[in-house]
Computed example of a mutant assay.
Amino acid sequence: MELIDQLQTWISQNPTTASIFKYLVWVIAILIAVQVLRRLLKKKLPDSVTRYKSQKGVEIIGYIFIIFLSITYFTGNITDFTITIGLLSAGIAITLQELFLSIAGSLYIFFVKVYKPGDRIEINGIKGDVIDIDSIYTTMMEIGEWVSTDNYSGRIVKLSNAFVFKGPIYNFSQDFPFIWDEFNLPIHYTSDLELTKKIVADIAQKTLSDYVNLSKSHWQNVVSKYYIEDAMVEPTIAITLTDNWIQLNLRYIVDYKKRRVTKHDLQQQIQQAIHATNGIVSLASTTFEVIRMPTTNIKVTSPTQH
């Protein structure tokens, strides 16, 4: 009882300090409650996507409670919200604008579904797979830089969520988890062109049939959702005549995560099939071919005798 009496006396003598202390206790209690709920959801929810979204939802609700508590605690009335915000924003708008943009960006990402964990995106010149999104940062496993094509570099990149308002966001997997890829095949002019086209078409059809069938249904969803015309998802071959060779361009659709391995598989099978034609089809390369040597007259004279 004596301890309680002393505490009450201290509170009556130091109302401002006591008020701040009680405010901090409430904030800590909310943060602890958020962490407990997050851990509970992590254990109870088996699905990783639902678990992740639920944890982020609890985190956002916790921040909303802290903001509401701060306004009502220090102003005494929720109606003073506009005045309080006006006074505070004058002093801290410039200093904390990046923080505010990041928080606004996280809400925008969460509700508008700009991207989600697991998506492959390119933002602010950085490409990678999204592995986490919190209230301030988007965390990505970087792709590219000093390694070729779509391989991981090994670096984990944290990018401010404010960048969703500052430039384009390229999403490789949203709505349509396929991309178009292509490569050129130089064929010698003496090759059997029809046989070459058949070789390339047959290999492309066999290798890419699963991607073509899966992509058709996804593309129909894209057409129904956006103002976009239908597109060709089957492999196509285009021919270009150059000064040195006949160039075959193979364009095809592929899973966005399997672009590199699929291109390797296609090129390896095509090279083996061309080699099996025993010269009927041959790959061309940049070489110099000497057609005819010009006639050269050489006259040898003996030195003058003195």
Rank of each mutant, 00 (worst) to 15 (best):
Y23W: 06
M140T: 02
F100T: 08
G144H: 01
I32L: 12
Y108L: 10
G125F: 09
F65I: 13
L193S: 12
I66L: 09
L69R: 06
D129V: 11
T236A: 08
W26G: 11
I28R: 00
F74I: 09
V58R: 06
Y252M: 05
T304F: 12
V49H: 07
T207P: 01
G76H: 01
L107T: 12
Y189A: 02
M293C: 01
S285P: 02
I237E: 03
T138H: 03
K158N: 09
T139Y: 10
I291W: 07
L283I: 15
D129M: 12
V49C: 00
I83V: 11
V112C: 10
T296A: 02
L241I: 15
G57I: 11
L87Y: 12
K53W: 07
I94H: 14
Y211H: 10
T207R: 02
E122A: 14
M141I: 05
Q268T: 09
A104R: 10
A284H: 10
D181T: 11
Q8T: 08
N151A: 09
Q35H: 12
T75S: 13
V281A: 02
T196C: 12
I253G: 05
R38G: 10
K258S: 12
N161P: 07
A238I: 14
T190K: 11
Q97N: 14
I78K: 09
G76Q: 03
D181Q: 03
S148Q: 07
E2Y: 15
K299N: 13
Q269H: 05
N278S: 14
H264V: 15
Q305Y: 01
L185T: 07
I61A: 11
R292C: 10
K225M: 09
I92N: 02
S224Y: 01
S217D: 07
A90V: 15
G279W: 13
D255K: 05
S217W: 03
I136Y: 10
Y137L: 09
S191P: 06
L214Y: 07
K158A: 04
I253S: 03
I94G: 08
Y23N: 01
N278M: 12
K53V: 10
I126R: 02
F21I: 08
F165H: 11
K56A: 10
F183V: 02
A93H: 07
H264P: 01
T190I: 04
I291T: 06
M140C: 01
V281D: 01
S282D: 11
F176W: 04
P186L: 05
Y52D: 06
Y108M: 13
D5Y: 14
L41R: 05
L241W: 08
F183Y: 08
I30T: 08
L250W: 04
E145Q: 04
V58H: 11
M232T: 15
I237S: 12
N297T: 15
S70T: 15
N184C: 04
I131Q: 05
T287K: 14
I60S: 12
G125R: 04
Q35K: 12
Y115C: 01
L208D: 00
Y226F: 09
Q268L: 11
H275D: 14
I30E: 00
T286I: 13
T240G: 00
S217E: 06
K166P: 02
E122M: 13
N221H: 06
K116I: 01
P303C: 03
A29K: 09
I246Y: 02
V212D: 00
I298H: 05
Y189W: 02
I179P: 00
T50H: 08
